[in-house]
C-alpha cells in the first residue's frame, strides 16, 4: 500500500538522521474491545487538546452577555468575529457565517496538534505525540473535509452539485472521471501536505537536537512555530475554498 511504502521510506530517513526520530512510533496504551481500535499517545494527545480547548470554551462562554463583561468574552468575540471577517471576503459573508464552526474547529485542532509536537518530550514521553505528524490523523481530517464538502454541496444544490462533472454533456466521458479523481485528490493532497510538513519539521528539530542539544535547535523550533501556524492555516483555507466552491452556483 502506498502510505505504508511512504511511511517505510520516511521512517528509514528518520532513523538515519537521528536515533530519537526512530522512537517516534505510537505508544499503545490499551486496545478497545470493539473495532480493534488502539489508544496510543496520539489519541491521548488529541484528547488533551480537545479537553483544553473545550474547557477554555466552556469557561469563556459561561458569562456571555450582550454587553461584554469579561476579557475572556472580548477575546472569544475577537477570535470568532475575526475568523468570520477573515473568511467573509474569500468565501462570502453567508458562507463564512455557515462554515465558521467547522473551519474554526479544524484550524484550532490542527494548530494545537502541530504545536503539541514542539513541546519538550513530544514523541518520547508516553501519551504525548503530535497527531498531525501521523498520516493517519491527517487523512482522517481530510476524510472529514471530503465528506463535509460533498454533504454541503448536495444539501445546498441537490443533484445539481454533480453537474460540474458532466458539463458540457458532450465532454462528460472525459470530465466525469477527471471530476471524480479531483474530488479524491484534493483531500489526499491536503492530508499529505500537512503531515509531510509537520513530520519533516519535527524530524529536523529532533535531528538538530540530537546533534547539538544547546541553542542551535532554537532556530528550527522558532521556524516550526511559524510553519505549524501556516500549515494549519493552509489546510483550513483550502477547506474553506472547497466548501465555497461546492455550494456556489454554476457559472
Amino acid at each position: 500500500m502506498f502510505p505504508a511504502a511512504v511511511s517505510a521510506g520516511m521512517a528509514a530517513i528518520a532513523s538515519e538522521v537521528g536515533e530519537e526520530a526512530a522512537s517516534h512510533g505510537p505508544h499503545v496504551f490499551f486496545r478497545l474491545p470493539f473495532l480493534g481500535l488502539e489508544v496510543t499517545s496520539i489519541e491521548t494527545t488529541m484528547w488533551g487538546i480537545m479537553l483544553i480547548v473545550l474547557v477554555a470554551a466552556w469557561l469563556g462562554t459561561r458569562t456571555l452577555g450582550r454587553v461584554p463583561r469579561s476579557r475572556g468574552q472580548a477575546l472569544l468575540e475577537v477570535a470568532v468575529d475575526g475568523l468570520r471577517a477573515f473568511f467573509a471576503p474569500i468565501i462570502g459573508e453567508e458562507n463564512a457565517r455557515a462554515f465558521l464552526p467547522f473551519l474554526g474547529s479544524l484550524f484550532i485542532f490542527i494548530l494545537l496538534s502541530n504545536y503539541s509536537g514542539l513541546l519538550p518530550g513530544a514523541g518520547h514521553l508516553p501519551g504525548l505525540a503530535a497527531p498531525t505528524s501521523n498520516w493517519g490523523v491527517t487523512a482522517g481530517l481530510a476524510a472529514v473535509v471530503f465528506v463535509a464538502v460533498q454533504y454541503v454541496g448536495v444539501k445546498k444544490r441537490g443533484l445539481a452539485y454533480f453537474k460540474h462533472m458532466v458539463n458540457p454533456w458532450y465532454l462528460a466521458p472525459l470530465l466525469l472521471p477527471l471530476g471524480v479523481v479531483e474530488e479524491f485528490v484534493r483531500p489526499f493532497a491536503l492530508s499529505l501536505r500537512l503531515v509531510a510538513n509537520i513530520f519533516g519539521g519535527e524530524t529536523v528539530v529532533l535531528a538538530l537536537l540530537a546533534a547539538t542539544p544547546w541553542f542551535l535547535p532554537i532556530v528550527p523550533l522558532g521556524l516550526e512555530l511559524i510553519f505549524g501556524f501556516i500549515q494549519a492555516f493552509i489546510f483550513t483555507f483550502l477547506t474553506a475554498i472547497y466548501l465555497a466552491t461546492a455550494v456556489a452556483e454554476e457559472h
Binding site: 520516511m10 489519541e43 488529541m46 480537545m50 470554551a57 485542532f109 493517519g136 472529514v144
Partner: peptide, 24 residues
C-alpha cells in the same frame, strides 16, 4: 511518518466530537 487506519478512525471520531462540542 506513518499511516495507520487506527489513527485515521480515531482522528475522524475525535474531530467530529470536537467539532460538535465546540459548536455547542
Amino acid at each position: 511518518m506513518e499511516f495507520s487506519t487506527n489513527e485515521l478512525i480515531w482522528a475522524i471520531i475525535n474531530f467530529v466530537v470536537f467539532f460538535v462540542l465546540l459548536r455547542l
